[in-house]
């Protein structure tokens, strides 16, 4: 199962790279969502997969009785998801604002900060 997950992370990365290289920034944002998921899964996978044993301590026990899932990557992924949401929302707003001010969704045409050589002359 871990190998299968590694494979699907590879697919997520491949599609997100393709999407993030697209000229349309909307596709770029789709790629951003996918690569966030891929990153979260990578961290999760690095802690290995343990089915059916959440990292909780039973009432009355001082420590988990048997092997439970790795809690550390879970904590990392949890915050990463929330931050990923913040990033996604900001990117969405930025793109929307770029569209309303510049009138285009194509990143090649967004050249206010770095104008073309012949634009400036």
């Amino acid at each position: 199962m871990e190998s299968l997950l590694a494979l699907s992370i590879g697919v997520l990365v491949a599609t997100s790279v393709y999407l993030m290289l697209a000229p349309n920034v909307l596709r770029f944002i789709f790629g951003l969502v996918l690569i966030s998921n891929a990153a979260n899964l990578t961290i999760f996978l690095a802690g290995r997969l343990t089915p059916g044993a959440p990292p909780l301590i039973a009432e009355g026990a001082a420590a988990p009785a048997k092997l439970v899932a790795n809690a550390l990557p879970q904590a990392l992924v949890l915050t990463a998801i929330v931050i990923g949401f913040g990033l996604f929302a900001f990117a969405l707003v930025l793109m929307f604002r770029a569209y309303t001010t510049l009138g285009t969704l194509y990143s090649d045409e967004m050249r206010v900060a770095e104008p073309r050589e012949n634009d400036s002359i």
């Binding site: 992370i9 990365v13 790279v17 990578t42």
Partner: peptide, 16 residues
């Protein structure tokens, strides 16, 4: 771009 995406994806899977 597709080739690059495929390449990065493959390398990520192999690394994992």
């Amino acid at each position: 771009d597709a080739a690059l995406g495929l390449g990065v994806g493959t390398v990520v899977t192999l690394t994992l």
